[in-house]
Design a protein around this nucleic acid. Structure first.
Lengths: 179, 179
DNA sequence: GGAAGCATGTAAAGTGTTACATGATTTT
DNA sequence: AAAATCATGTAACACTTTACATGCTTCC
């Protein structure tokens, strides 16, 4: 059975102590979503496949009358996760950004519209930087203080990169204004 | 009829003077691919839709016995393109990167393996930076000298951003080594 | 009492890639 | 002569998202 990165995401989340499918989706929305999105409609079938493959075990774990299932890594699950972390094979990187596509074709616009386009793009980038710094990073830093530090490293990488792009676009804006 | 960004990509390429569907795919592979990928199986049906919507006209343009079709923007095509360039509605940004996902879960690894993982990631990022600087940017700069400057701006943004991430990871590596 | 959140899952629709299928022209 | 490139298109497959469907619990 061949695992996808989404499968390893779930294995990894379970290893970090996230118990339910719902929980995995919720945590992933404030952490891994930005470099590996998932949806609930993906989480549940994938967890079932991982159980069937013997990488996870699923226990009933109801909260009162509300059903819930708790997942745990098996020995083979641990091994699969370790092997993945040490391997260098990677799915091709995917990036789709309509704003950058617009920028690519911006020559057709009048100069003032070109400037407006760059400014809008910069504002969006700025929002992402702020959101990452203020909403995502603090959560990762909470984890960091209990010994799990890579989520915070990744959040900082994202925050710093977006801040860099923001400054870059600011300068591009200034240069466009001079013309 | 609702156009997707892929549709505007094709409109934009035709406006830049790319004539055939094959040509659009080829040019996009060394330019827009990095922020909006397409495949031939997308290009041909989409061009047909754009013709049907009255945004493009298609003329026969054979090379000897080899069939070829040349596309041109209609007045309505020009207008649709301009409206898109000036609009601020955007499809949600998509980013998927298995290497960053690995980094997120790297706490489970021994320190030497963590370091190896960061190093591998940095090397990949470095390759992208180099490729963008040496292969993609020169093509965009050729366009720039004939007056179309935004493709070069986008290529520089990409090259500089990846160079920044490369330096960032270098420093993270150094900090990991100290521990 | 109602809204928001917790929790699990399926079905349908949409999007996209790979493989298939064909054939001409140019380069090595 | 073979390989690479130019050129168009379809079919099958894989993957993802959105909508559907249901019900409990907690907070206001």
């Amino acid at each position: 059975m061949k695992l996808t990165p989404s499968g390893f995401l779930m294995l990894g989340m379970v290893r970090l102590g996230v118990r339910s499918g719902y929980g995995i989706k919720k945590i992933s929305d404030v952490s891994t979503r930005f470099f590996w999105p998932t949806s609930l409609a993906q989480v549940y079938p994938e967890l079932a496949r991982l159980v069937q493959a013997g990488l996870l075990i699923r226990r009933e774990d109801p909260q009162g009358a509300r059903e819930r299932f708790a997942y745990e890594l098996t020995e083979r699950g641990e091994q699969a996760m370790d092997a993945w972390l040490r391997s260098s094979r990677e799915a091709p990187t995917q990036f789709r950004h309509e704003g950058v596509l617009r920028l690519f074709f911006a020559d057709a616009l009048a100069e003032e519209d070109q400037l407006a386009l760059v400014r809008r793009l910069r504002e969006r980038v700025s929002d992402v930087a702020t959101h990452t710094r203020e909403e995502i990073l603090p959560l990762a830093e909470a984890l960091e203080s209990s010994g799990t530090r890579f989520p915070a490293l990744v959040a900082r990488l994202r925050a710093d990169t977006y801040a860099y792009v923001e400054r870059w676009l600011e300068q591009a804006e200034a240069e466009l204004e001079q013309t």
